[in-house]
Amino acid sequence: MIKRHFVASAPPPPKGVKYHHASEADGWLHVTGQLPSDPSAPASPFVEGIEAQTEQTFRNLITIIEAAGYRLGDTVFARIYLSNFERDYDGLNRAFCRFFTDDAQVPSRTTVGVAKLGRDALVEIDLVLHRAR
């Protein structure tokens, strides 16, 4: 059985776009890619800089994860997209390490450079989590 999670306190999908924030099945939670949107003003401009955008993106992810009954430490895999890989990779890593402080709990990940992200974001992140039942 698949359980879909729409989290009212997380940034909503753009107008005309349909998706749930996360889908859960058999202890696995797949969280939709998040941008650095401010949930209280989702159409407002993003904060500036890769570290600030990464931190806001993680706050959005944590809102969704916790609403689904998981915790960030349950993350198995992170997929990260950067619109300027060369410039922003180090800053992304600094912010990422602030959220995953325990080396034993750092998830596997892929980080890729892309030509463009929605709303000209510098970063987008999606996660896969697992929790034993």
Score class of each variant (00 low, 15 high):
residue 22 A to K: 05
residue 125 I to L: 10
residue 51 E to R: 15
residue 6 F to W: 09
residue 43 A to C: 03
residue 58 F to S: 03
residue 34 Q to G: 07
residue 100 F to A: 08
residue 56 Q to G: 09
residue 106 V to E: 01
residue 30 H to I: 14
residue 113 G to H: 03
residue 114 V to W: 05
residue 90 D to K: 13
residue 105 Q to K: 13
residue 101 T to F: 07
residue 49 G to A: 05
residue 97 C to L: 12
residue 15 K to R: 13
residue 72 L to A: 01
residue 43 A to K: 14
residue 29 L to M: 01
residue 119 R to W: 12
residue 10 A to P: 09
residue 75 T to H: 10
residue 55 E to Y: 08
residue 109 R to T: 09
residue 46 F to T: 04
residue 122 L to G: 12
residue 99 F to H: 12
residue 126 D to N: 13
residue 117 L to F: 11
residue 110 T to H: 08
residue 49 G to M: 10
residue 59 R to E: 09
residue 85 F to K: 10
residue 22 A to T: 03
residue 29 L to T: 00
residue 14 P to Q: 06
residue 98 R to A: 07
residue 70 Y to K: 02
residue 94 R to S: 10
residue 114 V to D: 09
residue 43 A to V: 04
residue 89 Y to S: 10
residue 67 A to E: 02
residue 13 P to N: 06
residue 37 S to L: 11
residue 50 I to T: 10
residue 110 T to Y: 08
residue 38 D to I: 07
residue 92 L to F: 12
residue 111 T to L: 10
residue 41 A to R: 15
residue 90 D to Y: 14
residue 12 P to R: 04
residue 92 L to G: 00
residue 97 C to M: 09
residue 21 H to Q: 01
residue 128 V to I: 15
residue 79 R to H: 15
residue 80 I to V: 15
residue 106 V to W: 01
residue 93 N to D: 10
residue 121 A to C: 03
residue 88 D to N: 03
residue 57 T to S: 04
residue 29 L to I: 04
residue 8 A to N: 11
residue 133 R to T: 14
residue 65 I to A: 00
residue 75 T to W: 05
residue 8 A to E: 15
residue 27 G to T: 00
residue 130 H to P: 01
residue 49 G to E: 08
residue 26 D to V: 01
residue 123 V to W: 03
residue 33 G to E: 05
residue 38 D to F: 07
residue 104 A to I: 04
residue 62 I to R: 08
residue 92 L to V: 00
residue 51 E to S: 09
residue 77 F to A: 05
residue 93 N to F: 13
residue 132 A to Q: 12
residue 96 F to Q: 05
residue 62 I to G: 02
residue 10 A to T: 07
residue 16 G to Q: 08
residue 82 L to I: 06
residue 28 W to H: 05
residue 117 L to H: 12
residue 6 F to N: 13
residue 113 G to P: 05
residue 89 Y to V: 15
residue 40 S to E: 10
residue 90 D to I: 14
residue 104 A to K: 14
residue 27 G to V: 02
residue 71 R to K: 15
residue 93 N to Q: 15
residue 18 K to W: 07
residue 3 K to C: 05
residue 126 D to G: 13
residue 121 A to H: 01
residue 55 E to W: 08
residue 65 I to V: 11
residue 31 V to H: 00
residue 113 G to T: 11
residue 62 I to F: 03
residue 50 I to E: 09
residue 112 V to S: 11
residue 6 F to R: 12
residue 18 K to C: 14
residue 34 Q to W: 07
residue 11 P to W: 07
residue 26 D to G: 07
residue 99 F to A: 06
residue 58 F to L: 01
residue 21 H to S: 00
residue 2 I to V: 08
residue 67 A to G: 01
residue 126 D to T: 11
residue 131 R to E: 11
residue 46 F to V: 06
residue 15 K to E: 13
residue 11 P to V: 02
residue 103 D to E: 12
residue 58 F to A: 00
residue 33 G to S: 08
residue 131 R to M: 10
residue 104 A to L: 13
residue 89 Y to K: 12
residue 93 N to T: 11
residue 66 E to Y: 04
residue 98 R to M: 03
residue 88 D to I: 04
residue 28 W to Y: 13
residue 97 C to E: 09
